[in-house]
């Protein structure tokens, strides 16, 4: 059945998925990490107690996490027009992907940073560290393995979300599977695209696990 597979279309779609996931993973980390840091350090008894900021950030994060991803896609694709100049294709799809994944990752970052031993933070403060140094020299390095494994989980989620976003006009393997496979009654296309998605997920998981293990000195 594979003779019906349009390999050129498959590779193009795979490239688009990799692009979407890559870009959105990068920005998810870029927004998620500061948000996670903010959630932790502004909490009561931490290095920068600011209960109102904490509550506000937590509310925003929770809001974005509560909205179903498909709703984000429908609402944010138009916003993409304004942000990146197009409301179609993989680039536009990164907007809802980031909006969905960054709050999710922020919570993972929060948990990871809270796991850092309070005693170590206290030790750093007792040595005269600034708050900034506590974050950059203690919290982040100590939590790195957890941050990496959390990013792995997020990236895997992004792969499946990207397939969904694809169908609505983002392109990529999900889109190809839907249009060239499902809608065209081409099982070969459907299987190949699905298989490639699974391979991507596995690959990301392996790499993530390996990196996290290398970094873990506990």
């Amino acid at each position: 059945m594979f003779h019906e597979v349009d390999w050129a279309a498959v590779w193009k779609a795979a490239g688009e998925t990799a692009y979407m996931v890559g870009i959105s993973t990068f920005f998810t980390a870029l927004f998620g990490i500061p948000l996670g840091i903010l959630l932790v350090i502004t909490d009561r008894g931490h290095i920068r107690e600011m209960p109102w900021v904490q509550k506000l950030v937590a509310a925003v994060v929770n809001f974005f996490r509560a909205v179903p991803f498909i709703v984000l896609v429908l609402f944010l694709f138009p916003l993409a027009e304004w942000l990146v100049g197009t409301s179609l294709g993989p680039t536009a799809a990164t907007i809802p992907l980031i909006a969905g994944a960054a709050p999710f990752y922020a919570r993972i970052v929060e948990t990871a940073l809270r796991e850092v031993d309070k005693g170590v933070v206290e030790a750093a403060r007792s040595m005269g560290s600034t708050r900034f140094q506590v974050v950059t020299k203690v919290l982040l390095p100590e939590a790195t393995p957890a941050l990496v494994s959390g990013l792995t989980v997020t990236c895997v989620t992004l792969i499946s979300f990207s397939a969904m976003a694809g169908v609505v006009g983002g392109g990529g393997l999900g889109d190809a599977a839907f249009r060239f496979g499902f809608q065209s009654f081409n099982d070969g296309m459907l299987v190949v695209c699905g298989f490639l998605l699974v391979v991507m997920v596995q690959l990301v998981q392996w790499i993530g696990d390996w990196v996290s293990r290398q970094l873990d000195k506990r």
Partner: peptide, 14 residues
């Protein structure tokens, strides 16, 4: 003012 702790509080990533 140096300080040492019961549970040492070393950075395990270093």
């Amino acid at each position: 003012i140096g300080m040492i702790f019961q549970h040492f509080n070393l950075l395990w990533s270093r």
